[in-house]
Design a protein around this nucleic acid. Structure first.
Length: 195
DNA sequence: GCGACGATACTA
DNA sequence: AGTATCGTCGCT
């Protein structure tokens, strides 16, 4: 077992990468409970993921890559753990994580997370909805294309407490393939979109 | 170069 | 239902 901190972090990243290196419909529920850690500000901010959606790649009419690769969606073709952030409706950013294998553009949209406030964890802020989550974590398109486990990454992933129960529902806000149950959420979280 | 539209979220 | 608000992409 590695005892040096750097080696241990490396081992943690490898384990998380194995979770991400699977098809979106597997990786999306697996991501529930994991912690997004935002660095770059005065203090790191951690947010516990409580709601995700799977986007299946070129065969999924609701996916950004449905009509093929473009400069914007290119990060989705990167290795698992690559960050894809896009801008919608002239005001919101949405965070995605590329999953599966490099060259296979499946991804997971992070729809909600509980931002852990003070050291005591008492004042829990919620980022309900992908737009608000990005606003609360200060994420924008400058992060798109970066990788969660790069040494100096401003956004990383850590292990966290798994949910007691996982709910399944249709994806939010799409018109195509709207019936598919590809949205996953922590049933106990108040931060989940209410729809 | 142009225009339609979107993986949003709030208010009424 | 209405709306704020703009980057992206397909098409001309």
């Amino acid at each position: 077992m590695p005892s040096h901190p750097t080696l241990r972090h490396r081992a943690d990243a490898d384990r998380l990468l194995r979770g991400l290196a699977r098809p979106p419909e597997k990786a999306a529920p697996w991501l529930l409970g994991k912690l997004l850690v935002r660095r770059g500000g005065r203090h790191p901010v951690a947010a516990r993921i409580v709601e995700t959606e799977a986007y299946l790649g070129e065969g999924d009419p609701a996916a950004h890559v449905f009509r093929g690769r473009t400069p914007r969606n290119a990060p989705l073709f990167g290795p698992p753990g690559t960050v894809y952030v896009y801008f919608v409706y002239g005001m919101h950013h949405c965070l995605n994580i590329a999953v599966d294998r490099e060259g296979v553009p499946g991804c997971v949209l992070i729809r909600a997370a509980e931002v852990l406030g003070g050291a005591d964890g008492r004042d829990t802020l919620i980022g309900r909805g992908p737009g608000r989550l990005c606003r609360v974590l200060g994420l924008d398109t400058r992060l798109s294309g970066r990788h969660l486990f790069d040494p100096d990454s401003p956004l990383t992933l850590q292990d966290g407490p798994r949910p007691r129960a996982v709910g399944v529902a249709p994806r939010v806000g799409i018109t195509k393939a709207a019936e598919r149950l590809l949205r996953f959420f922590d049933e106990d979280s108040p931060a989940v979109s209410r729809r």
